[in-house]
């Protein structure tokens, strides 16, 4: 029963990644070709992708009887899902153009990467969730990652707009993008909130380190503190106007990629202890 749920969850998540990819491709084609019909396809594809994504994560939680962020596969999936939720809310509140387009791109990318890396999807250790502070720490950390993912998205949008202006291009894509000032301000705010949430997560994680040394290894703790310190340093540089917006945006993107890469060593300890991947259950 658990195995069928897991398989079904993976296929739902795979379908959602495909739908996000289709939404992204449709919008990209419409932008390149300067067409206006894209919303007829883009939104249904985005919403159905989101529905399958949510259903897949629900089935996943049902099968494991826990919050679905115990291995890199699930963490990538949850970060992608939270990013889409935040994009949908933020888009509705601010009417910011093209944010949902870039959001589908990110969700498709995270979904595809996590589905391709079958070794990431290993069984979690049940002792992990015995202490209620641990899942709370994990939930906060993952939420901060989704905020960093939006900071990285808006930073990417800034760099594209900056390229368009520097290369003196007036294509539809550039004219639909928000202004540099708006993108700079929004990525700073996402980073700001992300750092606050990650600080809480890191403090909680550190407080529980002594009680759960087998789960929270020292390398994991050091990696978490390093990522937090890097984001805090970037935020301070930005706050004291020591960085050009372009450099800040490049740093946002790079740090997010590094933070995602760091998820692998962060969770490697569990896998190294011989816990078999879910994908091998059959």
């Amino acid at each position: 029963m658990e195995g069928s749920f897991l398989l079904e969850a993976r296929s739902q998540l795979g379908l959602s990644a495909l739908l996000y990819l289709a939404a992204f491709g449709t919008k990209l084609y419409a932008l390149i070709k300067d067409k206006n019909w894209d919303n007829l396809l883009f939104r249904p594809l985005l919403y159905s992708g989101f529905l399958f994504h949510s259903w897949g994560l629900y089935l996943r939680g049902l099968s494991t009887q826990s919050l679905p962020f115990s291995n890199p596969f699930e963490i990538f999936q949850v970060i992608g899902w939270l990013a889409v939720v935040l994009v949908l809310i933020f888009r509705a509140v601010t009417q910011m153009q093209l944010l949902s387009f870039f959001g589908t791109g990110l969700a498709a990318l995270l979904g595809t990467i996590s589905l391709q890396a079958s070794s990431w999807d290993y069984a979690f250790t049940p002792t992990l969730m015995n202490n209620p502070w641990i899942p709370f720490h994990a939930a906060l950390a993952i939420f901060s990652y989704s905020l960093f993912s939006l900071a990285a998205l808006t930073a990417l949008m800034y760099l594209i707009q900056d390229y368009g202006l520097s290369a003196k291009r007036g294509h539809m894509l550039f004219s639909h993008l928000p202004s540099l000032k708006q993108l700079d301000a929004i990525s700073s705010r996402f980073l700001h909130v992300g750092v606050i949430i990650l600080s809480m997560a890191v403090v909680l994680g550190s407080m529980n380190w002594f009680a759960a040394k087998d789960v929270i290894t020292l390398p994991k703790l050091i990696a978490a503190w390093t990522i937090w310190a890097a984001y805090l340093f970037l935020l301070l540089l930005k706050h004291y106007k020591q960085l050009h917006p372009g450099v800040f945006c490049k740093a946002c993107l790079l740090l997010f990629i590094l933070a995602l890469v760091a998820l692998w060593p962060l969770n490697r300890g569990l896998h190294a202890r011989g816990i078999p991947p879910y994908t091998h259950h059959g």
């Binding site: 202006l165 007036g170 540099l180």
Partner: peptide
């Protein structure tokens, strides 16, 4: 018109 459109791509 072109100049204002460009300015709006830089400033909100």
């Amino acid at each position: 018109n072109v100049a204002t459109t460009l300015a709006l791509r830089i400033f909100e």
